[in-house]
Design a protein around this nucleic acid. Sequence first.
DNA 1: CCGACAACCTGTGAGC
DNA 2: TGCTCACAGGTTGTCG
Length: 277
Amino acid sequence: MPELPEVETTRRGLRAAVEGGRIAEAVVRHRGLRQPVPRGLEQQLAGATVQSLDRRGKYLLFECTRNGHRSGTLIVHLGMSGRLWLVDRDTPPQKHDHFDLAMDHGRVIRLRDPRRFGLVLWQRGPALEHPLLRDIGPEPLTDDFDGAQLHRETRSRSAAIKLAIMDSHLVCGVGNIYANEALFRAGIDPRTPSKRLSKARCDALAREIKAVLGEAINAGGSSLRDYVGSDGMAGNFQNNFLVYGRAGEACTRCGSMIRETKQAQRATCFCPHCQKR
DNA sequence: CCGACAACCTGTGAGC
DNA sequence: TGCTCACAGGTTGTCG
């Protein structure tokens, strides 16, 4: 599930349950995520208050205070298979439920991540100065990202445009699905060398990235395969995919057959008629 | 600096 | 049924 819209949907779904709330207890059942869950995290979190739940790219940031002073930030990344949702206190944890944040009000924020590509970290200093966050590019939904920026950043890149927009240093939060979808909507062949894109086409692509991410957030994200948790966190944008997962089907715009290829070991789906180099 | 590729890990579905 | 293989929403690191 987790590209930017899914992470943002998660944030919105959890906000009311965490913001201003006090953490009763944090439970770590498996420290072996992409990086080890830091020792002592439980002590940092127990008794802290969650001031706000923010997002930077695909990272969720729980800003914590203790005795009215900022104490640090709980950083959570969902990786490929992570899911964070609310359960009742007495819900028994299952096999891949690695982390719990039990709140004073009785509900529990639970992380389930079968593949364990996710992250649970603690940052004492300013959250955005964390090494994983420091160097990531602009948020795609803000004015920091637009066609001019995309054009500027791609002038010296010979890599394919799909790889460029999936590079979190150029723009954060765009994963495989939404990269495919935005390129289709902008009419750009994903294999086009980035530096060959005109300013006008960069404008179109930036516009479509914003549009598709925004629409997906409004639809509550996309739910693939595995079930999604309660609390209105089931998304349905997967029904609006125009190319992703549609190889062999007819293009909704022109009827040509959608093709699939690989770029950087990831599936690229596109319409050879609608999308031009 | 860049691109290609492997690595991290488990679950699922296809094909035999 | 059951085995094997390819592949899945992400990101980092290494090598040439």
